[in-house]
């Protein structure tokens, strides 16, 4: 059994009715647990870019990637976990605050280069962007003030450099398992 690890998978999807459903259905059926999923418009009209993070061994990640690639509405997909990539997440955190604690919270927010985007007599809303660790640390720091609401965006990821696995003009470059030959990675759409 290979070790579980976090896999970051990016995909280009067609904006069609039910496409998220189809993707979710494949992931569920293959027994994969998604820890985050983010989707939105991308540079090409009619396409969306999705990042999802899953936990599992390389074989499972490879299977899910290949099974998803078979969906007609998945234009391109790659597990970028073995590439060099940037990840960011955004969170909105509503924290209890009164005149006595507000100053301290603002200091913490400053240190994290986060922003305060709403203030009311009993609370304030912090906007933070960074990798998951940063978001988690900030949450840890403000926890004792009383966190009433947290909304996290989930991970957005992009391969560094000009050509990345998620680029709508590039091809997938690597499969995570050494033993998997160059299947389906040379051509845009593979054929299952």
């Amino acid at each position: 059994m290979e070790a579980d690890r976090v896999h970051t998978i990016v995909a280009l999807l067609r904006d069609r009715p039910g496409v998220l459903n189809r993707v979710a259905s494949v992931i569920r059926r293959r027994g994969f647990n998604i820890s985050s999923l983010t989707v939105g418009n991308c540079e090409t009209e009619g396409l969306s870019r999705m990042t999802f993070v899953v936990q599992g061994d390389d074989n499972i990640a490879d299977q899910v990637t290949k099974q998803l690639r078979k969906l007609m509405d998945v234009v391109r997909i790659a597990d970028i976990s073995y590439e060099s990539f940037i990840s960011r997440e955004m969170a909105l955190i509503k924290v209890r605050a009164n005149p006595a604690t507000r100053g301290e919270i603002m200091q913490i927010v400053d240190i994290f280069r986060a922003n305060i985007v709403d203030v009311s007599p009993e609370a304030l809303v912090i906007e933070v962007t960074g990798d998951e660790d940063k978001v988690a640390s900030l949450l840890g720091m403000v926890n004792h003030f009383g966190v009433c609401e947290v909304q996290r965006s989930g991970r957005l990821s992009m391969v560094r450099g000009m050509i990345g696995a998620g680029d709508s003009t590039a091809v997938v470059t690597r499969s995570p398992n050494g033993h998997i030959p160059e299947v389906a990675v040379e051509v845009d759409r593979s054929g299952g």
Partner: peptide, 18 residues
């Protein structure tokens, strides 16, 4: 196999040909 997902799904392929 015509389906890339079948290669090494159950039995590891020494050489997989899609």
């Amino acid at each position: 196999d015509i389906d890339p997902a079948e290669i090494s799904k159950n039995v590891k392929a020494t050489v997989g040909i899609v």
